[in-house]
């Protein structure tokens, strides 16, 4: 695309992207603050929080890694957990294949920065008439990432600077999972996945204990749901 013509249209795309991303601004900054606080309170330096927002940029996996890093879990185990938590992103990409097919300049960045929330915006909000689509997609993605990095840094700096009694702040992670589970229950109204996952969790806790149950439970539930494929479709 020619830069002379895309400059004013790119500006319109940025304004529209900011408007579309305001809900994510509130969410990412506050949840980023919680993440930064948790990470610093687990003994890591403050700058690791924003650095992870750039290197990893995946909220649920970053939250889970706090405990794994603190307990010295193996890098292979951390990588496997990250894969299992982020495997859902493969699905997001599938439904954006057409939308991103015409993108060139920002395509690599768009793929790298595809989070749940950015996916949510890009699949529900249309760029304004006349605005450059690719600029709009890139602006939404970059704004969302900047909110996450900013929130993480704020939380980590607060945690490092103020010796306030933050005992119990880690419950924010449990709360986040409960919220996400309720959202899943609203959209997937079948009993099988919840029952299979509960049995898999119980079995994994009994078999390998609380320290290593996560990977075993996820793998067992994926295998356990396969026999229900016919019944569920």
């Amino acid at each position: 695309m020619e830069s002379s013509a895309s400059a004013p249209r790119g500006h319109g795309a940025l304004r529209a992207a900011f408007k579309a991303s305001v809900p994510v601004l509130l969410g990412y900054v506050t949840i980023g603050i919680a993440f930064g606080l948790l990470l610093v309170k687990s003994g890591q330096p403050w700058w690791l929080a924003p650095l992870m927002g750039v290197v990893v940029f995946a909220g649920a996996a970053q939250f889970l890694s706090v405990g794994l890093l603190a307990s010295g879990a193996g890098i292979a185990q951390i990588a496997l957990v990250t894969f299992l938590i982020n495997a859902r992103h493969m699905v997001y990409g599938l439904s954006l294949l057409d939308r991103y097919a015409s993108c060139k300049r920002w395509k690599a960045y768009l793929v790298y920065a595809l989070t749940d929330e950015t996916y949510g915006i890009l699949t529900t909000v249309e760029p304004p008439a006349g605005a450059d689509r690719e600029s709009f997609y890139a602006a939404v993605s970059a704004l969302d990432q900047s909110y996450w990095v900013l929130g993480s840094a704020i939380g980590a700096l607060i945690g490092a600077a103020l010796p306030f009694d933050s005992k119990g702040i880690e419950f924010a992670l449990t709360a986040l999972f409960i919220v996400l589970l309720i959202e899943q229950m609203r959209s997937v109204r079948r009993a099988a996945p919840y029952v299979v996952a509960t049995i898999a969790t119980g079995g994994a806790l009994l078999l390998v204990g609380p320290a290593n149950f996560l990977v075993v439970a996820i793998l067992a539930s994926v295998l356990g749901i396969l026999p229900f494929r016919k019944a569920l479709s």
């Binding site: 889970l64 299992l84 938590i85 495997a87 859902r88 493969m90 699905v91 599938l94 449990t174 999972f177 409960i178 996400l180 589970l181 899943q184 229950m185 997937v188 099988a192 996945p193 919840y194 299979v196 996952a197 509960t198 898999a200 969790t201 149950f213 996560l214 439970a217 996820i218 539930s221 994926v222 749901i225 494929r229 569920l232 479709s233």
Partner: peptide
């Protein structure tokens, strides 16, 4: 099939965990 059913299972595991 898995794209629909893996997310609710993972959230169940994370809450129970």
């Amino acid at each position: 099939f898995l794209q629909v059913y893996i997310p609710p299972m993972i959230m169940t595991i994370l809450v129970l965990g």
